[in-house]
């Protein structure tokens, strides 16, 4: 009985402590409330690229910005489509999937690209970028009936990039290798215990893997039609139509944020956000940020390449036409904020 009471006391203390510690999980802007015209809710997932959005809070003139963190891109996109948040940062494969499903979303700005790293197990004896040797190894393993296994989070930009990259190097992504669906968080373990031969993680997980020598950098999978496109900022179509002032303010904020990310102070603030939200070490964060490329443009031809690749992989139901894609990408607000022409921002066919 005394034992049970002890347990109850310990449990009550733990629960109370956790409840207190859990208070307040989102960040808000620090603009003067007396001059604020309202609050804009911005949402992003928790990859290194994505956490740059937390720095938007003091860069949107006239508005408070509340940043919500989402564990999954799908949850974020669903909230955005349902009108629960105002501005969302997703990845380009998410954008294409949502266009295919007819969700009323419009891309308004690029954000940060890059951040994919094709890493191999240290036991795989390959020099970086030696694709000829890689191809030989893959074909040899296939002939032996032990296909080369690559851990990849299905549905991610990294997954699509590698599936596009391999054919460029003469490797059939569906026949010659075996893609194994492993969440980013499980890739280090899968490499460590030899369950897979390689992985295609995102930053900062990729940095953790390479810095801890669990995996070795082999190549960046950007030598294909989709390039290194990663993140894009989207809004609900209705919200875009009804809130021109807010859109203008958000675009001004993005136009300040994205160039700022490349400055020493911007890098420092960005690193602090990554370390705070992901618990990544300072060394890994530095490695991760070095691989990321802030870019406000939305290169249409590469978006089209991603959409076509996803159709070829039976991941979306239609081969999206140029017209359909264009309906969901608006260069107008970005052009106004940056003073650049849509063509300079990636518009085209």
């Amino acid at each position: 009985m005394r034992f049970a009471r002890l347990w109850a006391a310990v449990a009550a203390l733990l629960i109370a402590g956790t409840a207190l510690a859990g208070c307040g999980s989102s960040s808000t802007g620090n603009s003067d409330p007396s001059t604020s015209k309202g609050t804009i809710v911005v949402a992003s997932p928790q990859c290194a690229h994505c956490l740059a959005m937390t720095l938007l809070t003091d860069k949107v003139p006239g508005y408070d910005v509340k940043v919500e963190q989402f564990g999954t891109l799908t949850g974020l996109a669903a909230s955005l489509a349902a009108g629960k948040i105002d501005v969302g940062q997703i990845d380009y494969t998410g954008l294409v999937s949502m266009i295919d499903k007819g969700l009323p979303l419009v891309a308004i700005s690029g954000q940060v690209n890059g951040g994919s790293d094709f890493v191999v197990s240290p036991s795989v004896d390959l020099d970086p970028d030696d694709w000829a040797a890689f191809k030989d190894l893959v074909l040899q393993r296939k002939a032996e009936g032990k296909k080369f296994k690559i851990a990849s989070e299905f549905g991610s930009v990294q997954d699509i990039e590698l599936r596009l990259q391999l054919p460029e190097k003469g490797i059939d992504a569906n026949q010659d290798v075996e893609f194994v669906n492993v969440p980013y968080q499980g890739m280090a373990q899968a490499l460590q215990n030899g369950s897979v031969d390689a992985a295609i993680p995102v930053q900062p997980i990729a940095a953790t893997i390479t810095n801890s020598k669990i995996g070795v950098h082999f190549a960046y999978p950007y030598d294909q039609a989709a390039g290194d496109l990663t993140n894009v900022v989207v809004v609900n179509k209705d919200w875009l139509a009804k809130n021109p002032d807010r859109i203008e303010a958000v675009m001004q904020g993005m136009n300040t944020l994205v160039p700022d990310l490349s400055t020493p102070q911007g890098q420092k603030d960005w690193a602090a956000a990554v370390e705070k939200y992901t618990g990544t070490s300072s060394a890994d964060t530095t490695t991760a940020l070095a691989q990321l490329k802030p870019d406000i443009a939305m290169p249409f031809s590469q978006i089209k390449a991603i959409a076509h690749a996803m159709y070829e992989q039976n991941l979306i139901s239609t081969d999206l036409s140029v017209a359909t894609l264009k309906e969901h990408i608006d260069y107008g607000p970005l052009s106004q904020a940056t003073g650049k022409t849509p063509a300079e921002l990636g518009a085209g066919s």
Binding site: T74, S97, K101, I316
Partner: peptide, 13 residues
């Protein structure tokens, strides 16, 4: 689950 999670990732509700 394989079908469910993949469909979820690609918004195929």
């Amino acid at each position: 689950g394989y079908t469910l999670w993949n469909a979820y990732n690609y918004f195929d509700y």
